[in-house]
Simulated scan of single mutants.
Amino acid sequence: MTINKDDCHTEDNAPPARKIGPTRRSVSGQYVFRGKKGVAFESTLERDFIIRMEFILAVDGLRSQPVTIPFTGHQGRTFPYTPDFLVRYRRGLAQTELYEVKSYAEWSQNWRKWKSKWKAARRYAKQQGWRFRIFDESRIHDVVFENARYLERYKAMTVPPDTTEPVLSSVPVHQKISIGRLLDEHPRHVVLHLIAIRTLDFDVNEPLDPLDLGLTVWRTES
């Protein structure tokens, strides 16, 4: 089995190498990534992975089921393997990464059986100049994910521009300002709404709940 180069697109609108259908074993569906396109998932852990990646502004795009890679398994037989996601980062910040999302219980029980396909994925990713990574809940349900979940209710709020503009005017371009200072001058829900919709950014590895008033924010690039 060989990989068809026409199936190895990195564009976000490229068709998936493998389509996800309904499953009784877990939850499947589509998550609208940054309000533009649906990204397929076939477990709640995969959905949470998408939520986490959406929150990281360095992530430029994400595709599910991006490419099918052949690998040699038991008794020399060749099988197809399709990793879960391909994540593209903004130029100059990080490389493109190929991801397999599996719970700790699954991969720790099956790693011997799956190591052949994962080796093939690492080899393929290296040939493309990418990196192959395996993420379980310990890497997905981290501070970044908790921040994204904490801000969900603020993201859903409808806040008029005449309320958000004074906040943005308080944050000089290319400068950082403490959240505490903003909250002294503006309503809490407006400040957190701007962070939730990613108009304001912060160190996503620092927890927002409970809120550290010394945490700094800055305006994101439009």
Rank of each mutant, 00 (worst) to 15 (best):
I3W: 03
C8L: 09
C8Y: 00
H9P: 07
A17T: 00
R18P: 02
R18E: 10
T23P: 06
R24L: 15
R24V: 10
S26T: 12
S26Y: 03
V27P: 07
G29T: 06
G29C: 08
G29I: 04
Q30L: 15
Q30V: 14
F33P: 10
R34M: 13
K36C: 13
E42C: 11
E42I: 06
S43E: 06
T44C: 11
R47P: 06
I51S: 01
R52F: 00
F55G: 03
I56Q: 10
L57S: 15
A58V: 09
V59Y: 00
D60C: 05
L62P: 04
R63L: 07
S64V: 09
S64T: 12
Q65A: 10
P66S: 11
V67Y: 05
V67I: 15
I69P: 00
T72P: 05
T72W: 02
T72E: 14
Q75A: 15
G76W: 01
R77G: 09
P80G: 10
P80E: 02
Y81P: 04
D84E: 09
D84P: 11
F85Y: 15
F85I: 08
Y89Q: 01
G92M: 06
G92T: 09
A94I: 00
Q95A: 07
E100C: 12
E100D: 14
V101S: 06
K102R: 13
K102L: 05
S103H: 07
S103L: 02
A105V: 14
W107K: 03
S108I: 12
S108V: 12
Q109W: 07
N110H: 14
K115D: 13
K115L: 10
K117N: 09
W118A: 06
W118H: 09
A120Q: 08
R122H: 12
R122F: 04
R122E: 14
R123N: 15
K126I: 07
Q127L: 15
Q127M: 14
Q127E: 15
Q128P: 04
Q128M: 13
Q128Y: 03
I134C: 05
D136C: 14
E137R: 02
E137T: 01
I140C: 04
I140Y: 02
V143Y: 01
E146F: 04
E146Q: 13
E146W: 05
E146R: 12
N147L: 02
L151D: 04
R153A: 15
R153G: 06
R153L: 12
Y154W: 08
K155M: 11
A156E: 14
M157Y: 08
T158S: 12
P160T: 10
T163Y: 10
T163K: 14
T163M: 15
T164K: 05
E165S: 13
V167K: 02
S170L: 03
S170P: 00
S170I: 00
V171T: 08
P172G: 12
Q175M: 06
Q175N: 08
K176H: 13
I177Q: 03
I179M: 07
I179T: 02
I179C: 04
G180A: 11
R181D: 09
L183P: 01
D184M: 07
E185Y: 02
H186D: 02
H186E: 04
H189E: 11
V190H: 01
V190A: 15
V191D: 00
V191W: 00
L192Y: 01
H193Y: 09
L194Q: 03
I195D: 03
A196F: 02
I197M: 04
R198N: 08
T199Q: 11
D209I: 05
P210G: 06
G214A: 14
G214M: 09
L215P: 09
W218N: 04
W218P: 06
R219A: 10
R219T: 01
